[in-house]
Write a protein that binds this DNA or RNA. Structure first.
Length: 314
DNA sequence: CCAGCAATCCGCCAAT
DNA sequence: TAATTGGCGGATTGCT
């Protein structure tokens, strides 16, 4: 059970990253239990964040070791982390807890040996450096986050939001995660990797391209209907080829992959409501029951019936 | 699980 | 000339 959440702070900690953890785990949210959220400092006394804000941590590193979830928010990756911090993080995992990193926090987890043999990610700018310095880590530069059981890593700071939502979704369900996303006014699930945010890739249109956003809005209203790419292209008054390209540029995925992801998200939410059979759930997401089961298994490593059971007793 | 068929995706290229 | 469009073919993926 996820209850004790501890964010790790140090002199120069990222204000934004720390704020994300506080926003997700430090406030009461409908549909979620109240977490015991603390900020643990690498040292006592007053510190300053990277933007100069003054703060004082609630607790010391001993709180990290006993956390259900310890969050390492960024790091000045050139600096060796203090041994006491590495020990605390190892103790978290050894004690059955999980550790999560945002951005360059992955360098600290790597230094603690927690990423050896595991898949991990970090900010795309730092990924080559991470791979070079820790050859035992399987670095994947082009994803927003990676969940490797007890060890979770995410890309640039804002991807920390995606990872936090992922943790909430896995633990408390899609409805709770969606409610939280609504409160924070962020998309409940961003698809596609971080390459869409790289400078050296295709020029990113300023803001989500309107014509595509209009179509995705419409798609969300019509998930239960059969939707084809050529149909969607027509709605956007583009050729299928151009539509596919524009779609990729503004969402980071292809139309079909995006559609499937949204359908599965809806399926999760519907399964959390009791009373509708799996057949009806499938219908309302525009999938046949076999298709729902197959994709559900592929994406979540589970099946609809089992997923429902985890939210309602046997 | 497989087969056969349809839709999708993506690199390439010619046309704007 | 540079950038965008959209059609084509073949590999892949999905559906029944």
């Amino acid at each position: 059970m996820l209850s004790r959440v501890v964010a790790i702070a140090y002199p120069g900690v990222a204000t934004f990253g720390l704020g994300v953890t506080a926003e997700v785990f430090g406030k009461a949210t409908d549909g979620l239990p109240r977490f015991r959220y603390q900020v643990a400092g690498t040292r006592r006394g007053e510190m300053r964040t990277d933007t100069g804000m003054r703060f004082r941590a609630d607790a010391g590193l001993d709180a990290v070791a006993s956390a259900d979830l310890a969050i390492m928010v960024c790091w000045r990756e050139r600096e060796p982390p203090p041994p006491a911090l590495l020990r605390a993080l190892r103790a978290t995992v050894a004690g059955g807890g999980r550790v999560m990193s945002h951005c360059t926090g992955a360098f600290v987890l790597a230094a603690a040996g927690l990423l050896d043999g595991r898949r991990a990610t970090t900010h795309w700018m730092d990924a080559p450096d991470l791979a070079r310095r820790y050859p035992a880590v399987r670095v994947e530069p082009d994803v927003l986050y990676i969940d490797e059981g007890p060890v979770l890593t995410s890309a640039g700071c804002a991807a920390g939001i995606d990872l936090c939502l992922h943790v909430i979704r896995a633990e408390f369900g899609a409805q709770a995660a969606n409610a939280l996303a609504r409160r924070m006014v962020v998309p409940p699930h961003r698809d596609g990797g971080q390459s869409q945010y790289r400078q050296d890739m295709a020029p990113v249109p300023a803001g989500p391209a309107r014509p595509v956003a209009t179509v995705t809005d419409w798609m969300l209203e019509h998930l239960q209907d059969p939707l084809t790419v050529s149909m969607l292209a027509q709605r956007a008054s583009m050729s299928p080829r151009t539509f596919a390209r524009q779609f990729l540029a503004s969402t980071g995925t292809t139309p079909h992959a995006w559609l499937l992801a949204q359908r599965l998200l809806r399926a999760q939410a519907l399964l959390e409501d009791d009373g509708i059979g799996v057949e009806q759930v499938a219908r309302r997401c525009g999938l046949s029951p076999p298709a729902l089961r197959r994709h559900f298994g592929r994406r979540f490593g589970s099946n609809p019936a089992a997923y429902r059971k985890t939210f309602h007793g046997p």
